[in-house]
Computed example of a mutant assay.
Amino acid sequence: MTDTFKRLEGAERDSRRPLGEILDAIRFNDDGLIPAIAQQHDSGEVLMMAWMNRESLEETLATSQVCYWSRSRGKLWRKGESSGQQQRLKSAALDCDGDTLLLQVEQTGPACHTGRRSCFYVVLEGEQARIASAPLIDPAALYGQS
């Protein structure tokens, strides 16, 4: 844990620190990434987990349009740029260690590339896995494929 986050443990409620100081203290992994959990701001529904680097986090904070780092594409991924299913940032918070982000978002349509509202639809129950939701939109239609 960085000294910054250790000092924050004893910080009083509503005390403030410069954003740059906190961004400098984030514990990005060896690839320069931090996991970001997206949660629907009004219902608490967990929608997805993706990765952010400092650039995507700074863009998200500056524009309120959520931007992630796509590991498969090796570039910034502005949520909804191909599907139209955008995430508008309502708030962002770091965990106590500075190594995980929680994004409170306003999700437009499904968050999952499968067309489902949430990426967390495979429920593990005893000796089975159950599919807990159906797609809201056919993934082929979502991404303009025939």
Rank of each mutant, 00 (worst) to 15 (best):
123 V>N: 14
50 A>S: 13
133 S>I: 00
33 L>A: 04
95 D>V: 04
10 G>V: 01
67 C>I: 10
99 D>S: 00
41 H>L: 09
36 A>V: 11
71 R>N: 03
22 I>C: 12
113 H>G: 06
126 G>A: 06
9 E>D: 13
76 L>V: 09
50 A>F: 06
69 W>G: 06
67 C>G: 01
46 V>K: 05
7 R>L: 14
43 S>P: 02
92 A>H: 01
130 R>F: 10
21 E>C: 09
135 P>D: 01
52 M>P: 01
71 R>P: 00
68 Y>G: 05
116 R>I: 02
96 C>G: 02
117 R>W: 05
136 L>S: 04
89 L>E: 08
66 V>M: 02
92 A>N: 03
31 D>F: 14
53 N>F: 07
67 C>A: 14
118 S>W: 00
75 K>P: 01
134 A>P: 01
66 V>H: 00
134 A>T: 11
9 E>C: 01
111 A>K: 05
144 G>E: 05
52 M>D: 08
71 R>K: 10
107 Q>K: 05
46 V>A: 12
120 F>L: 10
42 D>V: 10
81 E>S: 12
140 A>L: 14
113 H>Q: 09
74 G>M: 08
121 Y>S: 05
121 Y>L: 05
129 A>H: 04
126 G>C: 03
146 S>V: 14
100 T>W: 02
103 L>R: 04
95 D>K: 03
69 W>I: 11
81 E>F: 10
96 C>N: 04
138 D>G: 01
85 Q>L: 07
144 G>T: 06
81 E>Y: 10
124 L>D: 14
118 S>I: 03
27 R>E: 15
125 E>F: 09
56 S>A: 13
103 L>I: 06
46 V>S: 06
85 Q>I: 01
71 R>E: 07
70 S>Y: 10
128 Q>D: 13
80 G>Q: 12
3 D>H: 11
122 V>Y: 11
111 A>G: 11
87 Q>G: 02
85 Q>A: 12
75 K>D: 13
139 P>A: 02
16 R>S: 11
28 F>C: 05
129 A>W: 07
111 A>N: 03
4 T>W: 09
96 C>D: 07
116 R>N: 02
136 L>K: 05
23 L>T: 07
81 E>T: 10
44 G>D: 10
130 R>T: 12
45 E>F: 05
141 A>W: 07
83 S>Q: 09
66 V>I: 06
111 A>I: 00
